Amino acid sequence: MKNTLLAPLFVIFILLNTVLVQSAHASTNKQTLLILGDSLSAGYGLEVEQSWVYLLKQDWQQKYPNRQIINASISGDTTSGGLNRFKQLLNEFKPTWVLIELGGNDGLRGFQLSTIKQNLTQLVQLSQQHNAEPILAEIKIPPNYGQRYVALFIKQYHQIASEFKLDLIPFFIESVATQPDLMQNDGIHPNAKAQTQIKTYMDKHLNQAIESE
């Protein structure tokens, strides 16, 4: 009688164990996009579910079930701040791709251009050293420190992309930044109404970068 009961229980145990192993294997096979950004990607002034990153994550869950997005963006972050926490993020999430969306706060504060470029370069190199494909987001800033500073600031993104043969995503809020009804009162951050448009733009350019590998 005992042997009769143990047989089906053993089969159930084997089946459950197989399902758990397969689930764990499936999760480890996911391709991860790590977004290292500032307030433009952190959803400053918005509810989490309103931000373009959250909207993109929802889309990708349906269209690309083997992908996941980790948003490591922090409002107010700089290239040096991102660099300080980057190794830990790489070790924790082991991303397939890294979207580097930093530099805006550096530029708004007038940081030395050479320091900004050096930090961005190190972010790219660290990504590659950890077998992650870096994708660089171009950043533009207001002419607070003069046109020459702005021109050189923007040029650095193109220089880094060219040097490392990276996909460079053109400034992703440029199309909404000139429309007051799509911006928050500070004139710097897109509002909730703009997020779907930004999500569509980033979906297109990120997929182009991923498919070009």
Rank of each mutant, 00 (worst) to 15 (best):
1 M>V: 05
2 K>C: 00
3 N>R: 15
5 L>S: 10
6 L>T: 15
8 P>I: 08
10 F>H: 11
11 V>W: 13
12 I>S: 13
15 L>K: 10
15 L>T: 15
16 L>Q: 10
17 N>P: 05
18 T>D: 13
19 V>W: 15
26 A>I: 10
27 S>P: 14
28 T>R: 15
29 N>R: 08
32 T>A: 06
36 L>C: 13
38 D>E: 06
39 S>V: 05
39 S>W: 03
39 S>E: 01
39 S>I: 04
40 L>T: 05
41 S>C: 06
43 G>A: 10
44 Y>S: 09
44 Y>G: 05
48 V>W: 05
50 Q>A: 08
50 Q>E: 10
52 W>L: 03
53 V>N: 02
53 V>R: 00
56 L>T: 02
59 D>G: 10
60 W>P: 06
63 K>S: 14
66 N>K: 11
66 N>A: 15
67 R>A: 09
67 R>C: 08
69 I>F: 12
69 I>M: 15
69 I>S: 05
71 N>T: 05
71 N>C: 08
73 S>V: 06
76 G>L: 03
77 D>F: 03
77 D>K: 01
78 T>M: 07
78 T>C: 06
79 T>M: 06
80 S>G: 09
80 S>D: 11
84 N>D: 14
86 F>D: 00
86 F>E: 00
89 L>R: 08
89 L>D: 09
90 L>E: 04
90 L>P: 02
91 N>Y: 11
92 E>I: 01
93 F>G: 02
94 K>C: 09
94 K>E: 13
96 T>S: 14
97 W>L: 11
97 W>Q: 12
98 V>K: 02
100 I>W: 00
103 G>W: 02
103 G>Q: 00
104 G>H: 09
104 G>L: 12
105 N>H: 13
106 D>F: 04
108 L>S: 02
108 L>E: 11
112 Q>M: 07
114 S>W: 09
115 T>L: 12
115 T>D: 09
116 I>A: 06
117 K>G: 14
127 S>I: 02
128 Q>L: 12
128 Q>V: 07
129 Q>I: 10
130 H>N: 11
132 A>S: 14
132 A>Q: 03
134 P>L: 07
136 L>E: 02
138 E>Q: 12
140 K>L: 07
142 P>K: 13
143 P>H: 10
145 Y>D: 01
145 Y>M: 09
148 R>H: 11
148 R>K: 13
152 L>S: 11
153 F>Y: 09
153 F>G: 00
154 I>S: 09
155 K>A: 14
155 K>E: 14
157 Y>W: 14
157 Y>A: 08
158 H>N: 03
160 I>H: 03
162 S>P: 05
162 S>F: 07
164 F>N: 05
166 L>R: 01
167 D>N: 11
167 D>G: 06
169 I>T: 01
170 P>G: 02
172 F>A: 00
172 F>W: 00
173 I>F: 07
173 I>G: 00
173 I>M: 06
174 E>R: 14
177 A>Y: 08
178 T>G: 13
178 T>Y: 12
179 Q>A: 09
182 L>Y: 12
189 H>Y: 06
192 A>H: 08
193 K>W: 09
193 K>V: 08
195 Q>K: 07
199 K>L: 04
200 T>K: 09
201 Y>W: 07
202 M>Y: 01
205 H>M: 14
205 H>T: 04
206 L>H: 02
208 Q>N: 13
209 A>K: 00
209 A>F: 04
210 I>V: 15
212 S>A: 11
